[in-house]
Structures are given as structure tokens and as C-alpha cells.
């Protein structure tokens, strides 16, 4: 087992252990904190696929995170009010079944990512960063100015959506749902990375001309990766909405895009468990600094700045050493 594999196992088991330790200590708040880590790590795992493997610096992943959140919020509101979502051409009612909501969140994010990707992937470098940001802002302002679902005030989910055979209102059970989803997506990421598709995606980052010369169009590979990446982040958004029982346009804001990016970079770009390490460290810092001073963002900024300037390769870069290319 390589050092990175050991660290990955430690991270996975560590996150699993936190809520149970918290339960034994009688500190249920830490369960919510661990759930937050799992969900935000999932958003990062999605971005890492585009950013780490594909080299697509998307500064607009908040769009998918927020879309997932609104999918959960809107379906749940319609189910709660017992109003159909729309009645024509066929009847579609709301739902408070998590599985269905996840499916809608994934499909919605994927379709939007496909459309954004069609345009955005024509550009590269800084233009790609800015056009993804622009699309996310477009959706953000749309959510703010569209009054039907709360506009700027957001939308409350009065009862957390349900999962078959489980009680999602129990923090531990909800944590386990999020944890299993996170692990499943990490597993999918690992399988994708080691597949022929993953190899093509990494070549598309390193040397697109060469990929094209072997008869594979880099654009298509990137587009597919962008769509999968967005779908995972959208799923994370649906879970995040259920965690807070609230969605608002702030889930779509560019700060969220920046934060998801921070998780990935803090953990180590392109590392499988990087987003989990990054999200965990970020949330722990946020929590402890927030307990010490109300100006925690100031110190968070300084720490982040030092990490970027002096620690290359993120947490996993320090712990597991430089990545070895096979």
C-alpha cells in the first residue's frame, strides 16, 4: 500500500468515526459538522474531476451546487403544499423522496453543464475561468430576481426529505447517507481516473494535440468530464439543501465557487481524497477560528495565502509526497 492509500483510508475512516465519537461525548453538533464536511467534500470531488484530471478551471461550480439545492427545495415545496410542479402536458407533482430528488438534481445539473460546456469549452485559459463565472452569475441573478421560489429570501424546506427505510431527521442516519454517497462518488472518480476515458481526459489536459492525433477529440472528452463533474456537485447541492433545510441564491454565489475550489486546492489538485482533506481542514479552521474571533475570515485569508504561496501540492502533497506518475 502506498503512503497515499494509507492516508486515504485514514481520512475515510476518520470522517466516519467523528459522528460516533461525538455521539458518545454527547456533542451532537459535531455530527452536523461532519455531515457538512462530507457534503462539501462531495462538491469538491465533482470539481476535482474537471479541475484536477481535466485541467478545466471552472469558477462556476456554484451554479451546479445551487441548481441541485433548488431541485431539492422546489420539489419539496411542491410536495409540502401538494401543488403539482406543472400540470401540462402531463402531470408532474413535487416529491420528498431523496432518491427522486437526487435524480432530478443530477439530471438538471448535467443538462445545464452540457449547455454551458458547449459554449465555455470553446475557450481556454483565463477565458474559460471567466465564462464559467459568468454563467454561474447568470443563474445567480436569475434566482434572485425570480420571485416564484422566494427570490432573494430563499426557500425553506419544512421537513427534511425522506429516504426509504431510514429516518433522515436523525443526524447520524442523515450523516451516513451523505457519507455513503461521498464514498460512492469517490469510488466512481477512482474508476473513471483509471479507465480509458480517464487516461484520455488526462492527456487532454497535458497534450490535447497528441490526443487529437490518436483520433480522440479533446473537446468531447472534456465535455463529458465537465458534465459528470457538474452532476456530482449538483448532487452535493441537493444534500446541502437538505442539511440546512433551506436554499437561497447564496448557494449560487461566486464565493461558493471559490470555496469549492479552495477545498480542491487545499487538499491537493488531482488527488482522489484531496477534496475531503481540504473540506475537512477548511471547515475545522472556520469552526475554531470562528470560536476565537469574530474576524476569523481575516486569519483564514492569511492561512490560505500562506498555503498557496509556500505549500505546493496541498495537504496530500505534504502528507503523501509528490505524486508519482506511473
Amino acid at each position: 500500500m502506498s503512503r497515499e492509500t494509507v492516508i486515504n483510508w485514514a481520512l475515510a475512516l476518520g470522517l466516519l468515526a467523528v459522528p460516533f465519537l461525538a455521539l458518545m461525548q454527547g456533542e451532537p453538533f459535531y455530527i452536523t459538522l461532519a455531515t457538512r464536511v462530507a457534503i462539501l467534500a462531495l462538491a469538491g470531488v465533482g470539481l476535482n474531476l474537471a479541475l484536477g484530471l481535466g485541467g478545466m478551471v471552472s469558477f462556476g461550480h456554484a451554479a451546479f451546487f445551487g441548481l441541485g439545492g433548488y431541485a431539492a427545495g422546489i420539489l419539496a415545496t411542491h410536495a409540502f403544499n401538494q401543488e403539482p410542479l406543472f400540470a401540462w402536458p402531463f402531470m408532474v407533482s413535487g416529491s420528498n423522496d431523496m432518491l427522486l430528488i437526487w435524480l432530478v438534481a443530477i439530471v438538471l445539473s448535467a443538462v445545464v453543464a452540457f449547455l454551458i460546456g458547449l459554449i465555455a469549452l470553446r475557450t481556454s485559459g483565463v477565458y474559460f475561468i471567466m465564462i464559467t463565472l459568468a454563467f454561474a452569475q447568470m443563474i445567480y441573478y436569475f434566482a434572485i430576481s425570480w420571485p416564484a421560489y422566494g427570490g432573494e429570501d430563499g426557500l425553506s424546506i419544512y421537513v427534511r426529505n425522506g429516504f426509504p427505510e431510514l429516518n433522515t431527521l436523525d443526524p447520524i442516519q442523515f450523516f451516513l447517507i451523505c457519507y455513503v454517497v461521498l464514498m460512492a462518488c469517490l469510488f466512481i472518480s477512482a474508476r473513471l481516473r483509471d479507465s480509458r476515458f480517464g487516461a484520455a481526459l488526462q492527456v487532454a489536459r497535458q497534450n490535447p494535440e497528441r490526443l487529437a492525433a490518436t483520433g480522440i477529440a479533446p473537446f468531447n472528452i472534456r465535455l463529458v468530464a465537465f458534465v459528470i463533474s457538474a452532476a456530482m456537485t449538483g448532487l452535493a447541492g441537493a444534500l446541502f439543501a437538505d442539511l440546512n433545510r433551506f436554499v437561497s441564491p447564496s448557494m449560487l454565489s461566486w464565493h461558493v465557487s471559490g470555496e469549492i475550489m479552495i477545498f480542491v486546492i487545499l487538499g491537493g489538485v488531482g488527488r482522489l481524497f484531496g477534496p475531503l482533506a481540504g473540506a475537512a481542514l477548511f471547515i475545522v479552521m472556520e469552526f475554531y477560528l470562528g470560536g476565537i474571533t469574530e474576524h476569523w475570515q481575516f486569519f483564514l485569508g492569511i492561512i490560505l495565502l500562506c498555503v498557496v504561496l509556500f505549500v505546493r501540492g496541498g495537504i496530500l502533497g505534504i502528507l503523501a509526497g509528490r505524486r508519482v506518475h506511473g
Binding site: 475561468i129 489538485v269 481575516f298 492569511i302 495565502l305 504561496l309
Partner: peptide, 28 residues
């Protein structure tokens, strides 16, 4: 000065950190 020869990703993150520092510093 330390960011010129880094890639855009590092620049975005470092200047994002600067925003946090400046905004919170001003609020302070």
C-alpha cells in the same frame, strides 16, 4: 510578485485569500 510564474489556479486562490483579508480587515 510571487504569483507571476504560477498558474491561474494559484493566482485565483491567492487573490481570493487577499479579498478575505481586505474585507475582514476593513470591517475590523
Amino acid at each position: 510578485r510571487r504569483l507571476y510564474d504560477r498558474d491561474h489556479l494559484d493566482q485565483v486562490l491567492a487573490t481570493f485569500a487577499l479579498i478575505l483579508i481586505f474585507s475582514e480587515g476593513t470591517r475590523w
